[in-house]
Design a protein around this nucleic acid. Structure first.
Ligand SMILES: [Mn+2]
Ligand SMILES: [Mn+2]
Ligand SMILES: [Zn+2]
Ligand SMILES: [Zn+2]
Lengths: 138, 138
DNA sequence: CTTCGAGATGCAACCCTGTTGTATTTGAGG
DNA sequence: CCTCAAATACAACAGGGTTGCATCTCGAAG
């Protein structure tokens, strides 16, 4: 699905910044930090990238997850693949900072105390990714 | 168990800062942000609080969890209660920022791709806590 | 094709969390 | 007591993210 189509389908104005950011995220296919996107798109202002990501997330075109480093990662929701309502766990490499969506598995049910209204859950599994392990052993 | 005993048992020097921070955390009984601890203990320098919390965590006397607001929360490990090796889920109120340990349940098993070496997991359930819901309805 | 206004962008300044460097103090063991 | 490694205070810094405001631009309406 084309970036422009995604934006229109979600009822968002198709601005240059949104098209660029969306295309970049689709091309990467994994959760990216705002900083990483800024690096890839130096023609965009940092604040614009933050606001663009917030728009995409608000419109349901992307989801975000927190890294252990305090930075959020945003990833396009690919409606053809995901199909994991309620979200999915994420992998995070503590060495290189790369994040990956663990599609195909959902989030666990958790027993919460009476009166607590659950809005969402976040499950991040951290460790050393395969490529970092290979590089470290070398 | 006394704060001093905890420190000695873990092989840490019993300094004034560590005793104060530990006592404060035991008294609260829930995960606290460094900022919250600083507020409660204005006689301590901010950096000292950060380094003290790192010491406690390194010695296995406390664990930490990330809040959705980007701040870490530290909580004393009460050896008499916890007994949840590998950690436990945490609750976070998105309105007041209060966090709670969900003792009694462990973290789920997650299928990770071949070659990924898991170091740890973090499961944060966020929503509106009972007292905030009551306050909001009022 | 032109007009026009809500919404998006760029820029500067700011806040908050956390870290690092370094001189000074402190506490536990001898 | 002494001693010295470890811990503390203070200042400076770094990174992620937000806010306010002037300017620009998309897209609907004429
Ligand atoms: Mn994901
Ligand atoms: Mn806990
Ligand atoms: Zn890696
Ligand atoms: Zn609350």
């Amino acid at each position: 699905m084309d970036a422009r189509q995604r934006l229109s389908a979600a009822g968002l104005r198709r601005t240059a910044a949104r098209v660029l950011v969306t295309e970049r995220m689709v091309a990467e296919g994994r959760p990216l930090t705002p900083a990483g996107i800024c690096e890839a798109l130096p023609e965009l202002d940092r604040v614009t990238v933050y606001r663009t990501l917030a728009s995409l997330e608000g419109a349901g075109l992307a989801h975000k997850v927190q890294g252990l480093d305090g930075a959020w990662r945003y990833c396009i929701d690919d409606s053809e693949i995901s199909g994991c309502p309620g979200g999915h766990p994420h992998l995070l490499c503590t060495r290189c900072g790369a994040m990956a969506c663990l599609l195909g598995q959902g989030l666990p049910w958790v027993a919460v105390p009476e009166g607590f209204a659950v809005q969402g859950k976040q499950l991040v599994v951290h460790g050393i990714c395969a490529s970092c392990a290979a590089a470290g052993a070398r």
